[in-house]
């Protein structure tokens, strides 16, 4: 049955309306959870606010578990979903760059957009920065291309990497997440409060 649009169950014209609505919900949830504040987001690195990690892990668990139940019920075909491709070294280096950018700027692209929505000027600067970053990347694409397209492992999942069933991955991940949640509260109690 699902996914609906790739299977032609919803006409493609609706695509953009749906995109707008999904974006609306996405922005609303992020803003309401406090992701429009860079100092709240960045609290995860200094131990005074773990909202990011809590929301992030909860989302990942809920969506992964939910998708597998839906696959079982036949509502959605997991094999038809878009799996983010793995290019080993670009993913690592890109992740390092994003980590740096995160520490410098305090946002990620999604949260910066919703922070712009409530009028954060630093978020606007961040978004402009992203565009400059994309521009620099594109202009130097000739140089970066071999690296960018190198070490391609295709659309692999954790199941391919570790060779175990997806259920184990989800269970292990859930247990890890719960432990992380516990320790995040544990740490937060011991860290000086920061008001932002």
């Amino acid at each position: 049955m699902g996914p609906l649009i790739p299977n032609g169950l919803i006409p493609i014209e609706w695509n953009f309306v749906i995109a707008l609505l999904i974006g609306l919900a996405f922005g609303y949830i992020m803003e309401a959870s406090g992701f429009s504040s860079s100092r709240k987001i960045i609290g995860v690195f200094y131990g005074y606010d773990f909202a990011v990690i809590k929301l992030f892990f909860t989302t990942a668990i809920v969506s992964a578990i939910g998708l597998y139940y839906m696959d079982y019920l036949g509502w959605v075909d997991i094999s038809q979903l878009y799996v983010h491709p793995t290019y080993l070294w670009p993913a690592i280096v890109g992740g390092v760059f994003m980590g740096l950018g995160f520490m410098f700027g305090g946002y990620c692209p999604g949260t910066s957009l919703c922070a712009i929505g409530i009028g954060k000027i630093d978020a606007l600067a961040f978004a402009v920065g992203i565009m400059i970053g994309v521009f620099i990347f594109s202009e130097s694409f000739g140089l970066l291309e071999p690296f960018f397209n190198g070490s391609n492992y295709g659309h692999i999942t954790m199941m391919d990497t570790f060779g175990i069933s997806p259920y184990w991955i989800i269970l292990i991940f859930t247990v890890i997440a719960v432990i992380v949640f516990y320790f995040s509260d544990f740490i937060r109690k011991r860290v000086k409060k920061v008001f932002y």
Partner: peptide, 11 residues
């Protein structure tokens, strides 16, 4: 949450 995840095994 853990039960939900473990529940996948028992499907």
């Amino acid at each position: 949450m853990i039960l939900m995840a473990a529940g996948l095994f028992f499907l």
